[in-house]
Amino acid sequence: MTSPIHAHIPVADAIARLFFPHVEVVLHDLDTGQIAHIANGYSKRRPGDASLNDDGISAEGEADIIGPYAKRNWDGRRLKSITAVLRDTDGKAIGLFCINQDIETFAALGDQLKALTTLPDPAPAASPLMAGDWRETINGVIGDYLSERNTALAGLASGDIDDLLLRLEARGIFEIRNAVPYVAEILRLSRATIYNRLAAARSRRQPSGETA
């Protein structure tokens, strides 16, 4: 049986096409806990991926419109996002219609587009509904690291990457199932390389005379 979420796919595709390449639209199926559709996907997520976490998600008690709220993409770019809760004829929440706008390019245009890109200061975090997304946690750690150094992923030296891996490890990221492949894809490293570089970085940080 076709999910009622699929009826919203043309709307998602239309929005993504109109605002291409700056807007990504993601449809979450609350019944399966998976991404049902993604239009103009630039967040390295795919249909069939878990929506937020392995425990599933629920929109019960949420307002029909959530946001706008601030997010980070995997490459540190700032996103302005908004979510609509999709309901059936009985009012039961069946899905989430999420629009993610990449505002980095617009911000560079200056004051002319300021009204379009400005977020409240400090920008509100995502609602508790979105708080369990481990990908968003990883994106935030990487984004903060890049912001501190005023650089992009492509500008990181080898030592910077090792330092970033140690920071991710300190945050417990690599204890999350499927986190290592996700980080590997972002950094364009193999999983084996990540483990090897982490081991070497730990060794360099360990005071001389101590053993692991």
Results as ranks from 00 to 15, higher is better:
M1Y: 06
I15Q: 08
F19C: 12
H22N: 10
V25L: 03
D29T: 05
D31K: 10
I35H: 01
I35T: 00
I35D: 01
H37S: 05
Y42K: 10
Y42Q: 10
S43L: 10
D49K: 04
A50F: 09
S51V: 09
S51P: 09
N53V: 09
A59T: 08
A63I: 04
I66Q: 00
G67D: 02
P68Y: 11
P68L: 11
Y69E: 06
N73E: 12
N73A: 11
G76D: 04
R78E: 12
K80H: 07
S81K: 12
I82C: 04
I94V: 14
G95R: 06
G95H: 06
C98E: 13
I99G: 00
D102V: 09
F106K: 13
F106H: 14
D111T: 15
L113M: 12
A115N: 15
A125T: 09
A126Q: 11
D133E: 13
G143I: 01
L146H: 08
L146Q: 08
T151L: 03
G155P: 03
D160K: 02
L164I: 02
R167G: 06
G172M: 03
F174D: 04
P181M: 06
I186K: 06
L187I: 09
L189G: 02
Y195K: 15
N196Q: 14
R197Y: 03
A200V: 14
R202Q: 14
R204F: 03
Q206P: 00
